[in-house]
Design a protein around this nucleic acid. Structure first.
Lengths: 355, 355
DNA sequence: TTGTATGCGTTATCAA
DNA sequence: TTGATAACGCATACAA
């Protein structure tokens, strides 16, 4: 009701949104004064009486500041770019919502772009974002070998990496504690009696792929198991299809294994697709652990055991970091590691008895 | 490489992005001329030689027009608002991507907001969108009884509804052909031999809830079956939890049925959650059909038979309609019905033999 | 065909 | 404490 009334009123001023000058005129003050009265940071520079009159006029007119004009003047857009690989990957919507839960109350909006893991596309989209004068960037597409991000950083663009990070460097990031996660997964499997465990890693040019792969080798060796290189394979992408392809390759190698630590849940889902054609029952013949605890894992066949990461919280944390960077560009920002936990469902069990 | 070189060059101009005046100066012309040369619509107003010089200068400087300044001048933002209930509902990411696939090549960006089905929130978010001078709105949250949208429409805001539509009115929409979809579902079930079919409808204050519910009754009666009111129940939301609650209520009624037509896939998923506690096997004891064919249905237990809608295409179509409305505000826009198809998976089978 | 001037709505600087 | 003025970067009406 309020909104519609406001809109009505705005028609009274020659058919357009009322401007600051309309407000000032109605309040009988100068536009500059109205601006000060309406700016919470410097409202104490105006007299109580003026404040009252300006606020009254603004309310009567349904005045809404024009963010475009404000941006042009202040060179800030109150907008941040959000660069993700693909919104249809269920990992990302919770992250996005977490980010927005912090951005929105702070008066910021997120401009979301999908890159489909295409570098040229990413470069182009980020360029477009920059031209829109975004105040900062949250990036979920970092790879270890990409000079683009470092270039942007050196250029003075504020940014925070989420989910994946870049190679060593100053750019702050919020990523899962990949090492603890993978350790939990391997501990769980060895606890069930598995001794021949395979790893379907994500792309090794991503920090998550590399870190999880390294953590896997360490965990295996910490348990005194033989680290068989032929039981580790790199998926071409963080996708169901790539997971399926990798497992198929692994099975063809004819090295026996009874469990799989998948690089993430989608790769685990790809494994599911192969089980039928390979005549394997999960978890009776083979166990699988995923990573991320994306939605709907509960309803899979079988429900997927996985490593949980608080994705919503991670998004929120990244947004907080970015806002801090925008407020105080000088202060260096920490990188944060999100804790992990093991969610045991039905895709893991003791290995089959046969030797 | 190109972008980073551009960024470098831009530093040459006193550490900021180069402006049109920088370009003009370098090309030895005035800003107005440079503006014309760079505007595809009126580029023929400048001489070939000037064109060449301006383009050259723009390229050398890595000039990117400032969309904020442009918007302030033209009163257009090249941004559209996208209002959805919840990005973590897997139905929406494909729609969003479809929308962006059309918007982006046209030079538009989408500003996404989540409403969580909260009306006050929706009103507030749309207000914020308006203040950001969006050129139009794509709305996936319409209900049949909400005066807000009509108000905005009458206010002159261009918009297109997607997925759900408002009550009769002039607002263009892109929605699934709910009637054909439900008819396919019921045909499929009766073809399998089911005669006692329940319907878990979505909220009846949404066009999809109401249309699917009506279509269900018609289809049942078209097959000469008894339309038992106690076999139809309205879910409180389009969610897994609401679907579970509704099925539990239905089972408590003690009216026998062998199949469920769910209002959408999430409601169907909610049914899955009840089967175990109710001692029902799907599809042996009970069949379920969903609606939308959201992602990952293939990996459920059992894989869900559903009604497919081309969600990506629907998004693209909605975006096309909106762009048309923005280009030519006067021309009335059509509403489009997206075709449906039946995807048979493993959640449907012949009813159990017992009478 | 090109130059000039103005204004979009806001904020910030400077005077008063 | 307030008013006047300029400027952010661009597009366009008008003049030349």
């Amino acid at each position: 009701l309020g909104a519609s009334r406001q809109a009505k009123e705005s028609w009274l001023i020659n058919g357009k949104q009322p401007t600051l000058r309309d407000v000032a005129q109605r309040a009988g003050v100068h536009a500059g004064t109205a601006s000060r009265a309406l700016n919470p940071l410097i409202r104490d520079q105006v007299s109580a009486e003026t404040m009252r009159r300006v606020e009254r006029a603004a309310r009567d007119l349904g005045y809404q500041p024009n963010p475009i004009a404000r941006s042009l003047r202040t060179a800030r857009s109150n907008t941040v770019g959000l660069v993700i690989p693909d919104l249809t990957n269920p990992l990302f919507p919770p992250i996005v919502r977490g980010i927005e839960s912090v951005l929105e109350p702070a008066g910021f909006s997120a401009l979301i772009v999908n890159t489909d893991n295409d570098r040229d596309r990413e470069r182009a989209r980020i360029g477009s974002l920059r031209s829109r004068q975004i105040d900062g960037l949250i990036i979920a597409t970092a790879t270890l070998d990409d000079p683009l991000l470092t270039g942007l950083w050196d250029d003075g663009l504020r940014m925070v990496l989420i989910n994946r990070r870049a190679a060593e460097g100053p750019i702050p990031s919020v990523v899962p504690d990949d090492e603890s996660g993978i350790t939990r997964a391997v501990d769980h499997l060895t606890g069930l009696g598995h001794t021949r465990i395979a790893h379907l890693s994500g792309p090794l040019n991503t920090s998550t792929g590399a870190a999880r792969s390294r953590a896997f080798r360490h965990a295996i060796s910490d348990h005194g198991l033989a680290g068989l290189p032929e039981l580790v394979i790199e998926c071409a992408a963080w996708s169901q299809a790539a997971g399926a392809a990798a497992l198929r390759t692994l099975l063809a190698r004819d090295t026996r294994f009874t469990a799989v630590v998948a690089g993430n849940d989608l790769i685990a889902l790809g494994c599911y697709d192969i089980f039928a054609e390979a005549g394997l029952r999960c978890p009776a013949d083979i166990s699988v652990v995923g990573f991320n605890d994306m939605p709907f894992l509960d309803n899979l066949n079988p429900p997927l055991t996985t490593i949980r990461v608080a994705n919503h919280d991670a998004g929120a944390e990244a947004a907080r970091l970015l806002l801090a960077a925008i407020e105080a560009p000088a202060r260096p920002l920490p990188s944060v590691l999100m804790p992990t936990s093991l969610v045991i469902r039905a895709s893991t069990a003791s290995p089959p008895q046969s030797g």
